[in-house]
Design a protein around this nucleic acid. Structure first.
Lengths: 189, 189
DNA sequence: TAAATAACTTGATCTATCTCACATTTTATT
DNA sequence: AATAAAATGTGAGATAGATCAAGTTATTTA
């Protein structure tokens, strides 16, 4: 079945087909329709999600109902509210679908079980988390040091395929500008 | 010797004194004076640093020579340019000392060796990185959704002891505002 | 396929924050 | 202790980006 996750493992660790089957048995598959929620604010976060297909967004809504996007999830990405997931808190963010989306769901208990049973799986997740770290750090750098226009152009470079499918006001909210400003950025070349 | 690191391990994993001695033998100790560099832009990053005492900053310098602070390191914190460290690239940031600082240095080779030899150490680093991830995510959230004043007040709440020892223009650059603006934020209560 | 809803654009105005300039205070250095 | 070098404060003016408002174009949904 899903070769996507297996391939992601294989980029970092060695894994037999039998092992993979066993590991996969710790995940459950879910399908969500457009606009459906995977995670809702103030609720418990049971899973980390590995995206098989589709596209989802994780966002925080402030006092003025303004949405701030933390992360997109497309094929091959992991996404969750990690603070809530790891530390069993209530979610601060919402995660919902920009289009029909299929995910593999891993509970914290199963994640820790697998990490305990397979040193290699723990290794895999450590490496993954390291990379996420680097990406987050770089986003902070960009937010601190670049103008709205520069951030927009960097996004196009980094995620050309995402730019296609994202509504502009969603992209704006990821970049930290209003939709009006974003609209002006690419008209006023 | 250094109980600091041992205690940090013990918060997450079990470890005997003998094991700790062995692990510690993979670190080297270094002392730096104020203004000395631990990491310099465009150079190789050999170590991840665990701060025993003192205070350091990690910052990026943009085309206009404006400094943007990514991270402070004080007692009990790990700090490095992780993109350069993990992926053996040249550093994008500088890391230097705000005061005399003593650190434990861990090379990537020794880190990976320890992770291979002790499943528990790999577990420790995974957990640590998870927490760092959450902190970085929250900083992004703050940068996206809060005003300069709100960010300043949050910093005071989160790191009261750091506010004391940091020069204001350094704090400003962490918060993503100019020193002039920061100065006005706390005069115009 | 019409009606309703969501997405996008553009103009006019407003505002938080930046820039530049200079004065004052604090901290290093000889 | 004297001098140089950083750090800080404050005013005046500039500006990137926000807000508010209205109109247009897509995309859903019934």
């Amino acid at each position: 079945m899903s070769e996507l996750l297996k391939n992601q493992f294989k980029k970092i660790i060695e894994i037999t087909d039998d092992e993979y089957d066993y590991i996969l048995s710790h995940f459950i598959t879910k399908k969500f329709k457009k606009h459906q929620f995977l995670v809702q604010e103030d609720q418990v976060v049971v899973y980390d999600y590995f995206v098989l297909s589709g596209c989802i967004k994780s966002y925080y809504t402030d006092e003025n109902d303004k949405m701030h996007i933390l992360l997109f999830g497309t094929q091959d990405w992991w996404i969750s509210d990690y603070e809530a997931y790891y530390f069993k808190k209530k979610a601060r963010v919402n995660i919902d679908c920009l289009e029909e989306t299929e995910v593999l769901c891993l509970s914290l208990e199963n994640r820790e079980k697998l990490c305990k049973e397979f040193h290699r799986i723990e290794h895999f997740f450590r490496k993954k988390t390291n990379r996420r770290n680097v990406a987050l750090q770089n986003r902070i750098l960009t937010l601190l040091s670049s103008s709205a226009k520069e951030r927009y152009e960097k996004f196009i470079q980094d995620y050309p395929s995402l730019v296609q499918k994202l509504p502009k006001h969603i992209l704006a909210s990821y970049l930290g500008v209003t939709r009006e400003t974003l609209s002006r950025l690419y008209s006023t070349k």
